[in-house]
């Protein structure tokens, strides 16, 4: 039996316009990872959440893994499949088009790992 592990890294996160970085996560034991993003609500004239996956050898210096979510502009869910990511993982990106004050999107984000 292969082990799997699910990590909620954001719950009801209120993301305002600006950059986003998830906390670093080590998952070297896993051979596959899926990032799930659930957009609960959006607000503002043109809300847009762009996220991509990054890896790192040391947990400090990050490089793009070449995988990105399509821009999220409405409530719903999306996933990103990753393999060959080494050990350290995070998601980075930007939120735009939200109101001048308050969140552009309220989101939940998960890592789902499997050996």
């Amino acid at each position: 039996m292969r082990r799997s592990h699910t990590v909620p890294i954001e719950l009801f996160a209120s993301l305002a316009n600006g950059p986003y970085e998830s906390e670093p996560y080590e998952a070297g034991w896993a051979s596959e990872a899926i990032a799930f993003v659930y957009v609960r609500e959006v607000a503002g004239p043109d809300p847009r959440l762009e996220l991509r996956a990054q890896g790192s050898a040391d947990g400090q210096r990050w490089v793009d893994l070449g995988a990105a979510f399509p821009p999220q502009t409405a409530p719903g869910g999306a996933l990103l499949r990753l393999t060959h990511f080494g050990n350290w993982l995070r998601l980075v990106g930007a939120v735009s088009g939200g109101p001048s004050s308050g969140p552009a999107a309220i989101v939940d984000i998960y890592w789902v790992f499997k050996e």
Binding site: E10, G59, N87
Partner: peptide
């Protein structure tokens, strides 16, 4: 926000 526990190989630069 909260940081989540994980399995680490104590990997550093």
């Amino acid at each position: 926000r909260r940081a989540m526990p994980m399995l680490s190989s104590l990997t550093s630069w």
